[in-house]
Design a protein around this nucleic acid. Sequence first.
DNA 1: GTCTATAAGAGGATAGAC
DNA 2: GTCTATCCTCTTATAGAC
Lengths: 194, 194
Amino acid sequence: MSKKPKAKDVLIDTASRLFMVRGYCGVGLNDIIEESGIPKGSLYYYFPEGKEQLAIAAIENTKRLVMEDIQRVFTDKENLIQALQAYVYTLAQMFGEGEKPIGSPIGTIAGEKHSTSEPIRLACESTFKDWQAVYAKKFIAAGYDEQQANSLATVFHALTEGGILLAFTMKSGQPLEQIAEQIPSLFTERPIEK
Amino acid sequence: MSKKPKAKDVLIDTASRLFMVRGYCGVGLNDIIEESGIPKGSLYYYFPEGKEQLAIAAIENTKRLVMEDIQRVFTDKENLIQALQAYVYTLAQMFGEGEKPIGSPIGTIAGEKHSTSEPIRLACESTFKDWQAVYAKKFIAAGYDEQQANSLATVFHALTEGGILLAFTMKSGQPLEQIAEQIPSLFTERPIEK
DNA sequence: GTCTATAAGAGGATAGAC
DNA sequence: GTCTATCCTCTTATAGAC
């Protein structure tokens, strides 16, 4: 389990990075071959079903990595608001640093393939559900009831996916920073007259 | 100005609809030809620069249509919270009806082309800025100062784009409904101790 | 198990008839 | 102005040598 062949992992790593930024259709197998240095034959040895199978592996890889990121931040900050805010700031940092924005969620793939590849859509759906479950758990720990927690988890997740999209499009971390700043104001509990 | 040739408009309409759902790379010119019934030669007559030019026209078309939707809802509901909530409900309705979700924002294209086509990225950026300006104006009318209004406009926009992505991926209007329900709780003003 | 060469087809784009 | 037939490149996928 610890001595896996490396080629497969390199492929998944490279594919994850490229897909997350340019989307599924925007990345050719040739791009992955070139960037990873792994020849095409090996790709089809490890992923006999081709591009779609590799994409699903990449999605599952990203799912795990992002889950770890979320858990780390949430463990570090016990307070709900601080935890949510800290996580969005980590997203913002990816853009601010001018470096390659890696590890960003799978929104790009989900957006273009939900209607044309059911296996990919299912992989994205499962990923989204798992992330939201972590968010929901944090809301519950902060005292929300289950239904409210689920809705707020959806809200927070939509904020991150939307924020990442805006940051990419604006070529700036500013949208994510603005969102992070507003988090205390958005998620602080208070009585609402129905 | 009122008696424009129809072929061009049909092309833009068809392209808008297909691009919004399946993204830029996911839609071939052949798909647009087939669905619109306009032959390829005519497409290149109206859009000599090809697919990219057509996509930009589609983005600008969607920008205008969505802007009108927003303005209509915002004019109808003077109250900030009610206006924001009503708009998200209109987005949710597109999915709930089981019909083709048309008129949805351009997130899909923005997500995949921001890094590979600067003209398209700019068209998306301009669109996003215009929509956000309308949101910001509504926040200002409700008494927020300009900086706060801009940040909250970003927040609301991210919520809608993220919500649409989740709805597509989950094949359900539920995420958008959950977001709509939470809007009063999210955007109701209250004192926060800094 | 790993890699190269090539097939088979789809994609965007063009030329030129009408 | 409108449409058809065709080109060329790029993409995914495969066959088979090593």
